[in-house]
């Protein structure tokens, strides 16, 4: 029962933190929409072209804008020592990584998930394709959260080159992009592709606590 209370209080704290920094998340979403505008201006407002490459654009920009918020993932809590306090409060590093990943999914990715329908209207994506995009992003965004957790915990002690964290996320998200965009173009293969995505999710979710926990421990040891 105690562990349940600790989890609830962990999310209470995350909620308070994210509420006070809500404009950061909103800025991320604005970045997403402004990049859509710029994409449309750069390829011209031709309806056919836009709707044929629309899904790819949405996915790319979602990936780019969710890597923007990576810096906040562990960095703040690491610098003010809250990570250590959570650990001393009886949560192992791997468990902290899992909780943080869910928190990132809830407070950063869900707002993106909600803004997808508006993006689809802007990009002329048909309604039946919207369902595929939505379901693929629901799984894909969780994979992105796990990857973000791994890469940002790796780069906690890296003061010189933070962009490396985004590059790591992007290089590992290549298969996700391939399969998620494939879902829309190969509609008859929907079930098999969604199973592949789900398989990737399980692999990444299994690696995440191990890799992030080890990196968190390392950074706290040598800080």
């Amino acid at each position: 029962m105690m562990i349940l209370n600790k989890i609830i209080s962990f999310y209470y704290r995350e909620y308070k933190l994210n509420l006070s920094g809500f404009q950061d998340i909103l800025t991320n979403i604005i970045f997403f929409f402004v990049s859509i505008f710029i994409f449309i201006f750069s390829i011209g407002p031709d309806k056919e072209t836009i709707s044929s490459i629309g899904i790819g654009i949405v996915w790319t920009l979602l990936l780019l804008s969710s890597t923007l918020s990576l810096r906040k993932f562990y960095q703040d809590d690491f610098e003010n020592g809250n990570l250590l306090i959570m650990h001393l409060n009886g949560l192992s590093f791997g468990f902290i990584a899992i909780l943080k990943t869910f928190s990132h999914f809830i407070f950063v990715q869900i707002p993106f998930l909600l803004s997808i329908p508006i993006a689809c209207i802007l990009l002329n994506i048909a309604n039946d394709e919207l369902i595929y995009l939505f379901s693929s992003f629901a799984i894909g965004s969780f994979i992105l959260s796990c990857l973000g957790s791994i890469s940002s915990s790796m780069n906690l002690m890296n003061q010189r080159n933070f962009l490396l964290g985004s590059v790591i996320v992007m290089i590992f998200s290549v298969p996700i992009i391939i399969f998620s965009v494939g879902i829309v173009s190969l509609e008859e293969n929907f079930n098999s592709l969604i199973s592949i995505l789900f398989g990737i999710l399980l692999i990444v979710f299994a690696i995440n606590p191990w890799a992030s926990g080890l990196c968190l421990k390392l950074s706290l040891e040598n800080n």
């Binding site: 308070k16 933190l17 006070s20 920094g21 003010n80 020592g81 306090i85 001393l88």
Partner: peptide, 15 residues
């Protein structure tokens, strides 16, 4: 059974 206070402050500055 232990409380640790580091030489940095852990209070959340935005709250």
């Amino acid at each position: 059974h232990v409380t640790y206070i580091a030489d940095r402050t852990s209070s959340l500055s935005k709250l």
